[in-house]
């Protein structure tokens, strides 16, 4: 399966002589040195990511790690210094101005952290914007815009102005606007970061629900691990403009390959995030104390077992057994590796 969006060895350096700096970075110069000695900012280095159709790819990293820079390369709001970006096999870098606009209109839509709605336009006109840019007729514009506003729960607010809505509702307009564009790919740059926690959970649920139906290729940026784990099919972790680890989120959680990621994952509620599927073992016995679904969270299984660590469960998927789970194994998985190592190191003393 070829990826819907493929980024290949992408470099971005901010500064006048960025092209000359690439070689230095390739030879191993790091971000502070580059800034000190040459006055150029290293934005991204050696990024290669495949984003599959119908999946949510989450890009996570701390502030300044280059997330926004990366997502803006996909629709070329930022020009790369070196590297390739392929969308449906087409190299975005080779597009002329008109083709680039067509790509932005028809293939990729975007949702912004600060909503970026047009303040002088009503909610309906904002949602119509992507189609009116394409010059579609007014009826189609209005029909589609109303449909998606309705879908994100904004029926009845069509004639308000953005400033009259709460943050959560404004972002719903932002999502409706992106959906009206009817593109395969949706780029979301910290789309929920400006919202308070409860609204944020609502919006995440809304996104997952829409995704179940629409199967878009979504690139979602966040600095929040809980959010990343909830949404991600594929997780990419960025640090100082480089990828530290990418893969299936559960896998990264259980096998962090870098102290940076261990730090990140050590604060997470693992019982809620980890799935039975991720920690089950091959079957080596016949008798079990009960059945559990492969996609069930560890939290649910703990409740089911009443905290008894002596039990062993049969892991089921679509009615067939695919593995087993010992409650002792589960308890071990709840302790992050960083912490257990730390204990092991300090106890002999």
């Amino acid at each position: 399966m070829t990826a819907k969006v493929a980024i290949k060895e992408l470099y971005k350096i901010f500064g006048q002589r960025d092209k000359e700096m690439v070689q230095l970075v390739k030879d191993g110069m790091d971000k502070p040195t580059l800034l000190d000695q040459h006055g150029h900012v290293l934005g991204l280095q050696d990024i290669s990511v495949d984003m599959q159709a119908g999946e949510i790819t989450v890009i996570m990293g701390l502030s300044g790690s280059g997330k926004s820079t990366l997502i803006r390369h996909l629709n070329r709001l930022i020009e790369p210094t070196a590297g390739e970006i392929l969308v449906d096999g087409q190299d975005v870098m080779k597009l002329g101005q008109a083709d680039l606009r067509a790509l932005r209109q028809k293939q990729m839509s975007m949702v912004f952290q600060k909503f970026a709605l047009l303040p002088h336009r009503t909610v309906l006109q904002n949602a119509e914007m992507p189609l009116s840019v394409q010059g579609l007729d007014a009826d189609t514009q209005e029909r589609d815009a109303r449909k998606w506003l309705d879908r994100v729960g904004l029926a009845g607010f069509e004639d308000r102005f953005p400033a009259q809505l709460s943050g959560g509702m404004q972002q719903r307009v932002g999502i409706a606007r992106a959906l009206t564009a009817n593109t395969d790919i949706m780029l979301m740059d910290e789309a929920f970061s400006a919202l308070d926690p409860l609204i944020r959970t609502d919006m995440q649920d809304l996104l997952l629900e829409l995704q179940k139906e629409l199967h878009k290729t979504i690139v979602f940026i966040t600095h929040d691990l809980d959010e990343a784990l909830k949404l991600a099919d594929h997780l990419v972790i960025l640090k100082d403009g480089a990828i530290v680890q990418q893969g299936e989120p559960q896998h990264i959680l259980l096998n962090p390959n870098d102290p940076y990621i261990e730090d990140f994952v050590s604060d997470i509620n693992r019982a809620r995030v980890l799935r039975v599927r991720s920690i089950m073992e091959p079957v080596d016995r016949d008798s079990f104390d009960g059945d559990v679904d492969a996609d069930s969270s560890l939290e649910r299984l703990i409740a089911q077992s009443d905290g008894d660590t002596g039990l062993v469960y049969r892991v089921m998927q679509d009615g067939a057994q695919i593995g087993q789970l010992n409650m002792k194994q589960l308890v071990k998985a709840l302790v992050p590796r960083a912490r257990s190592d730390a204990k092991g190191a300090s106890s002999p003393k």
């Binding site: 629709n75 709001l77 680039l100 606009r101 067509a102 790509l103 932005r104 209109q105 990729m108 839509s109 975007m110 912004f112 600060k114 909503f115 970026a116 709605l117 047009l118 303040p119 914007m129 992507p130 840019v133 394409q134 606007r177 564009a181 780029l187």
Partner: peptide, 21 residues
């Protein structure tokens, strides 16, 4: 607002659309 300009670009507006809209 730079964010709004960025949104206009991201949805494929040309220079004239950006100016008038």
């Amino acid at each position: 607002d730079k964010d709004v300009i960025e949104a206009a670009n991201a949805f494929g507006m040309n220079a004239q659309q950006k100016l008038t809209r």
